[in-house]
Structures are given as structure tokens and as C-alpha cells.
């Protein structure tokens, strides 16, 4: 038997063979298009003619024009706020399901948390508009209760509304990984901490929280990166000051007809969020190591 025949019979070859269709598909429809977007971002376009010569013009525009800088900064800020709000909202819920709900009921609770996510995406965002609007549910109830006399106007068509709506959309995705991490925490470790004399809070801070950190990190990544790309929520509830970078990318690809600039903006946004995410992971690892 030659080494090749041996290899072909081996596990490695069988595994690669099995995964090859999926891998080929992903390469063809993800890697190749991403490479093309990168290439496109170095080209330029005026009106309908595409100049296929290498140029950094789009990146210069994307990184120096105040409008884009401003949009990028705002998008990052909104994404970070959404992520922080989502994780903070999600952690107690995940903790509740993992520690306070009986094992038989856990699956049901997880199901309960995911149901609203299956409401049509567009409808969900639109309904927040109804809830937060001038004649909306919140204003109606508050006025009915006599808490306020005039409808509140600061709750719709601004960044707050965008943050709230996005947090609502992503919270199930944050609960799941944190819940999984909490489930993996060995309960006897917490009992050991109790046995060794830690109070409830110190037990949580010194044992449960550090051990569930991988789930928090996963939740952060899962929420933070895709959020930067949402353009429907800002369009529907954000008003003029709530627009994000994705709206600009969409605009460049569609109405403004400057795909290369859109591509440069998209890639810049991806690089920035990836860097922020990596810094976050790095800080976390450092924190966990030091805590030990």
C-alpha cells in the first residue's frame, strides 16, 4: 500500500471529502465575493464608468470625509450601546433560567425566549415604531396614567429608539450563549465557594461570573458585529440623526451608484468592528488571567 492509498483510506481524507461540497460552496459564495468586494474597493467609479486601476481614493474619502467619520463613529457608538444593553439585559435572564428554573422547564423557557424572534423582522421593527410613536403605546399609557401631559418626543426617531429596537432584536441571541456557559458551570464549585465562606455576591463575582465569561464573550461577538450592518432599524425608527453606516453603504450601492465607495465603507466598517471585537476579547482574557 502506498502512502497515498493509506492516506485516502484514512480519517483525514474521508473527512475532507465529506466536507468538500459545503466548503466549496462557502468558498465560492463567501470567500470569492469578499475578495471581489475588496478588489472593487480599490477601483473607482464616476457615474456609470468603472475605472479598473488601483486607487486608494475610496479609502481616503471613507476615512477623511467628516460625514463618513461621523457616521462611522455614531454606528460604533450605537453598536456598543446595543451590545452592552443586550448583554446586561440577557445575563440575569440566562442566570434565572440556568439557576432558578427546574431542569425539566429549562427547554420550555428557552423556547419562550426565542418565540418573539420569529415574528417577522420588518414587522417587529415597525411595531416598535407604533409602541414608541407620538400616539404610541408608551405615550398613550403614560398620558392615561397622568404621568405626563404632553407626549414624549425623545423616544422615537433618534438613537435611543435604534438602541432599544436593536437590543430587543438581539437579546435572544445573547441569552443563549450565556445560558449555555452557565449550564456548564459545575455546581459543586459554587458549593465549594460557599463552603469556604464566600457570601452570595462574592461567590457570584469570584466563581460564577468568571466561569461564564466565555458565554458573555460569545454573546458580545454575536451581537456586536452583525449590529453594525443593520440598516432597516435606523431607517424605520432612527430619524435623520439615527442613521448608521449601513444606510450609507446601501445608499452607495443602490441610489448613489458608487459601488466602489460603498465597498470601501463596508470593508472599513468590518475592519473596525473586528478590531474592536479583538481588543475586547484580549482585554477579557487579560482580566480573567489577572483575576486568577
Amino acid at each position: 500500500m502506498t502512502w497515498f492509498q493509506k492516506w485516502r483510506r484514512g480519517e483525514g481524507a474521508q473527512g475532507l471529502f465529506l466536507i468538500s461540497p459545503t466548503l466549496a460552496f462557502t468558498l465560492l459564495l463567501l470567500a470569492v465575493p469578499l475578495v471581489m468586494v475588496i478588489v472593487l474597493s480599490f477601483w473607482t467609479q464616476d457615474y456609470l464608468t468603472l475605472h479598473r486601476t488601483f486607487s486608494l481614493e475610496n479609502y481616503r474619502t471613507a476615512w477623511t470625509e467628516p460625514m463618513y467619520q461621523y457616521l462611522m463613529a455614531r454606528s460604533l457608538k450605537i453598536s456598543m450601546l446595543v451590545t452592552a444593553m443586550t448583554v446586561l439585559l440577557a445575563y440575569p435572564v440566562a442566570y434565572f433560567i440556568s439557576f432558578r428554573v427546574s431542569p425539566k422547564r429549562k427547554a420550555m423557557w428557552i423556547f419562550l425566549i426565542t418565540i418573539p424572534f420569529w415574528t417577522s423582522y420588518l414587522m417587529r421593527i415597525f411595531l416598535w415604531k407604533v409602541i414608541l410613536g407620538y400616539n404610541g403605546v408608551v405615550n398613550g399609557s403614560l398620558m392615561g396614567l397622568g404621568v405626563i401631559e404632553q407626549p414624549l418626543s425623545f423616544i422615537l426617531y433618534n438613537q435611543n429608539a435604534v438602541v432599544l429596537t436593536l437590543a430587543h432584536a438581539w437579546v435572544p441571541f445573547a441569552i443563549l450563549p450565556i445560558f449555555v456557559a452557565l449550564e456548564r458551570v459545575d455546581r459543586s464549585l459554587i458549593e465549594a465557594a460557599e463552603d469556604l465562606g464566600d457570601t452570595k455576591w462574592r461567590r457570584f463575582l469570584r466563581v460564577t461570573l468568571p466561569l461564564s465569561m466565555p458565554g458573555v464573550i460569545a454573546a458580545t461577538i454575536i451581537v456586536f458585529i452583525p449590529t453594525i450592518g443593520d440598516y432597516v432599524t435606523p431607517r424605520l425608527v432612527g430619524g435623520p440623526n439615527g442613521l448608521m453606516i449601513a444606510n450609507m453603504i446601501e445608499l452607495q450601492f443602490k441610489k448613489a451608484n458608487d459601488a466602489p465607495l460603498g465597498a470601501a465603507l463596508a470593508i472599513s466598517a468590518m475592519i473596525i468592528v473586528t478590531c474592536v471585537a479583538l481588543i475586547f476579547i484580549w482585554l477579557n482574557k487579560k482580566y480573567i488571567r489577572e483575576a486568577k
Binding site: 468586494v37 452583525p226 450601492f253 459601488a259 460603498g262
Partner: peptide
């Protein structure tokens, strides 16, 4: 693709 913003996937497929 699970963590990639959908707009990136949409844009890159459109370009291709």
C-alpha cells in the same frame, strides 16, 4: 456567515 453582518453578504454577492 452566522456572525457576518447580512449587509456584507448581500453586498458581496451583488458585486459578484
Amino acid at each position: 456567515p452566522m456572525v457576518l453582518p447580512e449587509i456584507i453578504i448581500g453586498v458581496s454577492l451583488l458585486v459578484v
